[in-house]
Computed example of a mutant assay.
Amino acid sequence: MSLPKNSEKPLRIPPWLRIKLPKTGNFSCTSDLIKDLELNTVCQSALCPNRWECFSKNVATFLIMGHVCTRNCRFCNIESGDLAPLDADEPARVAEAAKRLELKHVVITSVTRDDLPDGGAAHFAAVINAVQDAMPDCTIEVLIPDFQGDEDALKTVLDVRPNILNHNVETAPHIYPDVRPQADYAQSLELLKRSKRIAPDIPTKSGIMVGLGESDDDVMSVLDDFAAVDCDIVTIGQYMQPSRQHPMVKRYVEPEVFDSYAEEGRKRGIPHMFSAPLVRSSYNAAKFV
């Protein structure tokens, strides 16, 4: 099939992004457990390239509040559409899955639920409490939406004391109108800043993807912004097109350039930089703790 006239041709995926599938039986065991407990994971919903490796290590990032999002970020593979009511039993099932997988570090994220008065903050808190009760020695990281700038919602999550508070800015601000039209870069930075003010002892974390049309100077500018809000942990990874309906990759960044991003972040005073092509927000998250 020939490409339409004047259409862009997708870039060839470089060798450093070709993933070897694991050969252990743990992948199907983890997948079956998640299915059995009727849970969602961002690993599956977002088509994360690391899901085979993580499932094979009994690791998953739990996606709460359903699998349908109120927003429609163009880079994301999570659905938008009809929303389901919150599931009151979900916190207990997440805790049960974490216990069965014998996790030492649990990552909990969600779809964005702008339809809820608190954006789902109380449900986040309920899941955190359930995991804490079931596994007191387990550390918990939450990757939260922006709660539309609601400081009380943010405080609801911080009050139950997760070990890490994560909120991704995703990309450079000038790209937001194209790929994140319902989000606000300044609002996301303000969330990270508020978190430090409300709970200064809880580390903050954020991240971006490269390959959506940003320049290296844009990446440096975002690192400056992270440093200005005292963000403790920053992840930088390569954007990969989930399907032909999503924006094409504008550039593939070489591993050596990712190394330079990490060095620049450390120069700016960011304590923990994780920058590599296959780095994702929750990939190997336990190592950050």
Rank of each mutant, 00 (worst) to 15 (best):
C231M: 05
A92E: 15
A130T: 09
P173C: 07
T30D: 08
K205A: 10
A134K: 10
G211Q: 09
E190D: 15
K20G: 13
F124T: 00
I208R: 11
D232N: 10
F124V: 07
L3N: 13
A46M: 00
S260E: 13
N58M: 13
F274A: 01
D225L: 01
D87W: 06
S188T: 03
L21T: 11
K104A: 03
L47C: 09
P200S: 12
V127Q: 02
V68A: 03
K155A: 15
I208Q: 05
V157E: 09
C43M: 14
A186L: 06
Q187W: 01
A95H: 09
L192G: 03
V229F: 01
G81V: 02
V222G: 04
D32V: 13
I208G: 08
C69Y: 05
R180N: 00
R74T: 02
F274T: 00
E214Q: 13
G213P: 01
T70D: 12
D146Y: 04
R18I: 15
K193Q: 06
K250C: 04
I202H: 02
L17N: 07
D133A: 14
D115R: 11
H174M: 00
K287D: 13
I78D: 05
G213S: 06
A153R: 01
A227P: 08
I34Q: 15
Y176P: 15
N6C: 12
D217M: 06
P242G: 04
P203I: 02
R161D: 09
